[in-house]
Design a protein around this nucleic acid. Structure first.
Lengths: 213, 213
DNA sequence: GTCTATAGTGCGATAGAC
DNA sequence: GTCTATCGCACTATAGAC
């Protein structure tokens, strides 16, 4: 969390009026956490800056030292998320060579990441349509990028004979759908005390059963 | 569409000030279509009643002859959707006895229904969190009801030996996730020219492969 | 760096003419 | 049954004190 906010602090020094890094990062963490909490309960649009001021303990004026408009606040959070996701996914797959291992690593990494950053992932999904035209394209690119990652692994597997021949694009799509369900319906799974490990095993099992020769 | 609106017209004669059924239904269709169109593009909260007036061709004052508040408009659409979904699903399964047939019928009916009523389903999913506390409970009940339907079919199949023993609750969850992906990501599937039949075959195939003995 | 106070805008909802 | 006109309110964003 602190790392994310340090990145943002340094990347947006033009719009962030606060100069001391320690103060800036502390408040950014506060603001983003509050934004995610409020947005994920009632929606970003329904969250007013007065709500946000109350939740953070900052004043309206102080908030505007950290972003130039409500819309920009939305954009910043989204953008940071895509970068982080693709960076971590790509990193986790480095050095993993066999298709079976790559598939299971990608699925598990994605699930564990969305587990620790659940509010962020939920936010990306639900607020994507409220973005400006420019940012909306980035959202679509991000969705297709991770899907492409799975398609690539599956096709590699078909080629090497590790997987049987099948519709890799549709398989990748439903893998994504299953991963997304994990962070979109957290209320359901936590109520049932289904942990991320159990869910990860299940998804890997179902996909493996389907694609194995 | 006309049937749905006739149901609503008759069920809400207390809040709908228009008395002539022909006029009432014609405008209700107009209003709900416009609401779905605008909400699904920019979100229900971001849609103003002035947007809605422009889209329907009605005035602000006229709109209020068909609902008592913006919030109630949201509630009416949601409620009607649940009733329709459960009615159609239950009806489709009537007389279908073997677990294999029941499973495939449920999946296909759900997909075909969400295909013809895509804007409604998308709306239910994305706007559920903006509902009042009362209506939110109904949304959760509805989600769990359809899931329960799949769990029931799967358990019956395990008992009769048609399916192997497996985690039926998680299987039902991911079936729902796959069905939801169909109407949540329509832009993706239609861009790729994947039709509902192809998708339905795929989902049935994947689930069957997983649960067969 | 953060505050309070407020300007300016656009909303949901209503009243009353037609 | 539908319209126009308008009220009161809550919002985003800013200006200036501390």
């Amino acid at each position: 969390m602190e790392d994310i906010c340090r990145d943002i602090f340094q990347a947006h020094q033009d719009t962030i009026k606060v100069k001391k890094e320690a103060v800036g990062i502390k408040n950014l963490i506060n603001i983003y956490n509050a934004t995610l909490k409020l947005s994920n309960t009632k929606g970003f649009h329904a969250m007013t800056l007065r709500d946000l001021a109350k939740e953070t303990g900052l004043s309206l004026g102080a908030l505007y030292s950290y972003f130039s408009s409500k819309e920009q606040l939305l954009g910043i959070i989204q953008e940071q998320g895509y970068q982080l996701t693709s960076r971590i996914l790509t990193g986790a797959l480095e050095g993993v060579t066999t298709p079976e291992k790559r598939l299971s690593t990608a699925i598990r990494t994605h699930l564990y990441l969305s587990e620790t950053m659940q509010p962020w992932f939920y936010f990306f999904y639900m607020e994507a349509k409220h973005l400006g035209k420019e940012d909306q394209k980035k959202a679509i690119t991000s969705e297709l990028y991770t899907e492409q990652l799975y398609t690539g692994i599956l096709e590699q597997g078909v080629k090497t004979g590790a997987f049987r021949s099948h519709n890799t694009l549709l398989t990748a799509s439903v893998i994504k759908a299953m991963l997304q369900d994990w962070y979109l319906k957290r209320w359901k799974y936590s109520r049932r005390k289904v942990g991320v490990d159990v869910y990860a095993d299940f998804v890997c099992d179902m996909v493996n059963t389907y694609v194995r020769p």
